[in-house]
């Protein structure tokens, strides 16, 4: 009995909250909240950047820039590799014994459909 009540209550409360969250007023409130959150993040990021620059330490943007350059180099290597026609993988795992071990033959057929 109480288990059924839990299920019903869950359904009703979910519907109630969903109805509330589907209104324009809720969207406006969320928009204001997001505005405050993003302003806070931006201010914090700028302050931290100035502080780290003052200490002569790499900022988040500097680290991101290095990461992006590394990713670009990675992409170029992949493109060169593809151009050379050897997409066998640069990863050492591709030549591990487990992956190169003899595999079962690709001869499997689907089971015959049941008659009747």
């Amino acid at each position: 009995m109480w288990r059924e009540w839990i299920v019903q209550s869950e359904r009703q409360w979910n519907k109630f909250f969903n109805d509330v969250m589907g209104t324009d007023q809720y969207n406006q409130a969320m928009s204001r909240f997001m505005d405050i959150y993003l302003n806070g993040q931006k201010t914090l990021g700028e302050m931290m950047g100035r502080y780290l620059t003052g200490l002569n330490v790499a900022t988040r943007s500097d680290v991101l820039a290095i990461g992006e350059r590394l990713a670009a180099i990675d992409d170029r290597l992949t493109a060169i590799e593809r151009h050379l026609g050897s997409p066998s993988g640069t990863d050492e795992a591709s030549s591990s014994p487990a992956s190169t071990a003899a595999r079962p033959p690709r001869t499997r057929r689907p089971p015959a459909p049941a008659k009747g």
Binding site: A93, A98, R103, P104
Partner: peptide
């Protein structure tokens, strides 16, 4: 087995267990 890595992407190959595969 991981047969390929690129950035955060990983391509897995699961080891077959059947005696013959499709």
């Amino acid at each position: 087995d991981v047969i390929y890595r690129r950035g955060t992407l990983q391509l897995y190959h699961y080891r077959p267990v059947a005696s013959e595969i499709y």
